[in-house]
Design a protein around this nucleic acid. Structure first.
Lengths: 358, 358
DNA sequence: TGCATAAATGACACCGATGTCATGACATCG
DNA sequence: CGATGTCATGACATCGGTGTCATTTATGCA
C-alpha cells in the first residue's frame, strides 16, 4: 500500500506538501498540486486513517449500539425497522466525514461491555444508543465517558435523546379519521407498560376532544398482554368488546396487531373497508403495503430519528449546540393513508345496520 | 486518555513490558505482570487500535456492504432480515478479535464508491458483500483488491460466495407436506428472473419425484410480476387456476405472498387450515409468527449464512482454507412447522368435496 | 563449577500521517 | 532600495503502540 512518502517521492516534493494538497490547509502551487495529484492517482494512494487518527487524536468514528437491551425475546421482532434508523444516521455522519461503527449485541446484554471496549479502543468520538422500542433505559456507567445520544429511549438523567412523537402520530391518525367522517373510533391498545401505547392513547383522546367527540371507554380495549400467551384469544375478546360499541373504524396499537385483526374481522364475515375500516401504527411496510387492502398507518419516523440523532450528537461533539437545545426531542411522522380506511360519507354502515336488524 | 507510557511509568517498567503483558508474546515475571495490570486498571488504560494498526499493519477490521445493490424500490422490503445476517457475521468476527465495519448504501448504488474509499482508508482486511435477495451481481473492479466473500449473491468470476440452498429448503418443505399426507400440492411462484424461485421449483419437483407423485403443471402458477402492478389481480387469477387443480395445500414463493393468499382464501370462504393448508418461504417471523394461524415456512438461514461467510472470509485472510474448499457454498435451513398446515389424514377434504358437489 | 540456555527486561527505531517552525523567493510599499 | 509581508515549500518532531536486538539475571546440565 502506497504511503504519503511514496507519493512525495514520485512527485518530487516533501511529504508535507502532499499532505497540504490533500487537506488544503495551506496554499500550494498549481503545478505542484497537479504533479502530486498525478502521483497519487498512479500509485493508487489511499491515506491511512490509522495514521491520521494517531496524529490528530480524532478518530472520525461514531459508534452505534443496537439490539442492545432486550433481555427476553418478547419484542425481538419489533427491532427490524432499525435499518432505516441506521440509514438515516449514516447519511448525516458520512456528510461530516466520519464513519459509523455499528455494534449489534443481538439482544444479549452481556456482550455490551466487549462492544464498548472495542469502541474505546477505536476512540469513537460519540455513541448512538438505540433501543428497539420506545422505552426507558438505564445506561451502564462506563458509557458516560463520551458524548452520547439515546435513540428511541430515554433515561432518568436527562441524557440527550431522540424519541418518536407517539402522541402526535396517533393524534394525526385519529384526527384524519374524523375528518374522513368517522366518529365511533375503536382502539385496541398494548398494555400500559408500553410507553408508546400510553402516549398514543393520549393522542387518540386529544383528537376526539379537539373535534368535540365524547370519549367512550368501551371503544378502547387492551388487545395484547406483556407476555405472549393466548394472544389470539385475548385479541378476539378485546375485538369483540370493541365491536359491541359499534365503531366504524378500529385503530390498532401497531401493524402487527392490525394484521391479526384483519384475520379476525374476516372470520366474523366483516369486509375491510366495506364493513369496517382498520388502521395500524408503525407503517411497517412489509405488512402495511402487502396486506389487502393496504393498511393505513402512522409512520414511525425511524430514518428521521436516525438523522436527527446523528445531527444532535455531532453538535454535542463539536460544541455547537443550539442555545437552550432541549435534551429530549420528539420526531413525528406522517400518516400513510391506504385503502383500509374508507371515508365515512361513502361508507354504508353495514355493521350497525346489521346489528340493529338482529 | 492514558497511554502505554503512562502505564509503564506508573508500574515502573518500560513500555515494551506493558506491551508484553497485554499481548503475552514473551514471558513476564509474575510480580511485574501484577504491577502492570494494577497500573492499567487504575489509569483506566485502553490501548489505541490506531497505533496498533499502524505498527502491525493489520487493522482488525472487516467491512460489510449491505443494501448495496438495489436500484429500484422493487425488492426493498425483502432486505430487512439482513439483521440476522449481521448478527451471525459479527459473532464470528468478534471471536477472531476483529471488528465489523458496516456500510449500508441505503439502496443507492452511487454511494458505494465513497463507502469503499472509507473501507480502504481504514485498511479493512476483507469485505463481506451482502445482497438483499439471492441474485447474480457483477462486482466493481476496485472491490477485488482484497479478500471478499459474497453473501446471498454470486458473480460470473467464481468469487467465493455463501448462498441459501433454496432447492433443499423447498424440497424439505414439500417432502414434509407429503409425509403429512398431502399429494396435491399447489405452488404459487415468483417470475423466473428470480433465481431463488427457479431453485425452489426444482426442489418442489424433486420432492414429488422422490415420493413417486406425478408433476401436474396446473398446480404451479406464477403469482407475481417482476414489477409491482396489479399485484392482487394477478395473484387472484393465479390462485384461481391453482385451486381448479384441487390442491390440499398451497405453497407460496415467500411469506409475503402467503400473507396475501391468506386474505384471498378467506375472501373465497376457505378456512386455513381446515379447508386448505398454506405454506410460505423465508420464515419471515414478523409475518409467519403473527399471521393466524401461524404460517409454516422454510427458513432462510440468514444467521448461519452470515456466520459461515465470516468464517470463510477469515480463513481466506489467514490463508487457512480447507483443501479444495469450493468457491460457492450453500446453506440450508430448517422448515418451521406451524398451524397453517394440517396433516392430511385428519383433514377433511372440504375443497374437493365441495367442488364435486357443485 | 563452568558454560550453554532460557527468562526477563529495556533501548531504539519505525509505522504514516500532520503540526510547528524555518527558509528562500518574490511582491509590495514608503 | 531596503524593510516587510506573503507564498511556497521543507525539516523535524510527534502521536502510541510493537518488532528487533541487546543486555542482564536466573536456571539447567555435564
Amino acid at each position: 500500500m502506497a504511503t504519503i512518502y511514496d507519493v512525495a517521492k514520485a512527485a518530487g516534493v516533501s511529504p508535507k506538501t502532499v499532505s497540504r494538497v490533500m487537506n488544503g490547509d495551506a496554499p500550494v502551487n498549481e503545478k505542484t498540486r497537479e504533479a502530486v495529484e498525478a502521483a497519487m492517482a498512479s500509485l493508487n494512494y489511499v491515506p491511512s486513517s490509522a495514521a491520521r487518527t494517531m496524529r490528530s487524536q480524532r478518530s472520525g468514528l461514531i459508534g452505534m449500539i443496537t439490539g442492545a437491551i432486550s433481555t427476553t425475546h418478547q419484542f425481538e421482532d419489533t427491532g427490524l425497522p432499525e435499518i432505516y434508523l441506521v440509514q438515516g444516521a449514516q447519511r448525516v455522519i458520512a456528510q461530516s466525514n466520519r464513519t459509523l461503527l455499528i455494534a449489534d449485541s443481538g439482544g444479549q446484554a452481556d456482550r455490551i461491555p466487549a462492544l464498548l471496549q472495542t469502541f474505546r479502543e477505536h476512540r469513537v468520538e460519540g455513541v448512538l444508543y438505540v433501543a428497539e422500542y420506545h422505552r426507558e433505559v438505564s445506561l451502564p456507567a462506563n458509557l458516560r465517558d463520551r458524548p452520547i445520544v439515546l435513540v428511541n429511549c430515554f433515561d432518568a438523567e436527562d441524557t440527550p435523546a431522540i424519541l418518536p412523537d407517539d402522541e402526535a402520530g396517533q393524534f394525526a391518525l385519529v384526527d384524519g379519521l374524523i375528518k374522513r367522517g368517522h366518529r365511533r373510533i375503536g382502539y385496541l391498545t398494548l398494555p400500559e407498560q408500553q410507553i408508546a401505547s400510553g402516549l398514543r392513547v393520549d393522542g387518540y383522546v386529544r383528537a376526539l376532544k379537539s373535534n368535540g367527540i365524547e370519549f367512550d371507554e368501551q371503544l378502547v380495549q387492551v388487545g395484547a398482554l406483556p407476555i405472549a400467551v393466548n394472544e389470539f384469544d385475548l385479541l378476539w375478546d378485546a375485538l369483540d368488546r370493541v365491536l359491541r360499541a359499534e365503531p366504524t373504524v378500529i385503530c390498532c396499537a401497531n401493524d402487527k396487531m392490525a394484521m391479526r385483526v384483519y384475520g379476525l374481522l374476516r372470520e366474523r364475515g366483516l369486509a375491510i373497508p366495506r364493513d369496517i375500516s382498520v388502521a395500524g401504527y408503525d407503517n411497517y411496510r412489509m405488512i402495511a403495503e402487502h396486506l389487502h387492502p393496504g393498511l393505513t398507518s402512522a409512520q414511525l419516523p425511524y430514518a428521521a430519528m436516525g438523522a436527527l440523532a446523528a445531527d444532535k450528537l455531532l453538535r454535542i461533539i463539536s460544541g455547537t449546540q443550539r442555545p437552550a437545545e432541549p435534551a429530549r426531542e420528539l420526531v413525528s411522522g406522517p400518516v400513510v393513508w391506504r385503502d383500509s380506511v374508507q371515508p365515512r360519507d361513502a361508507a354504508i354502515t353495514h355493521l350497525s345496520t346489521r346489528r340493529k336488524d338482529t
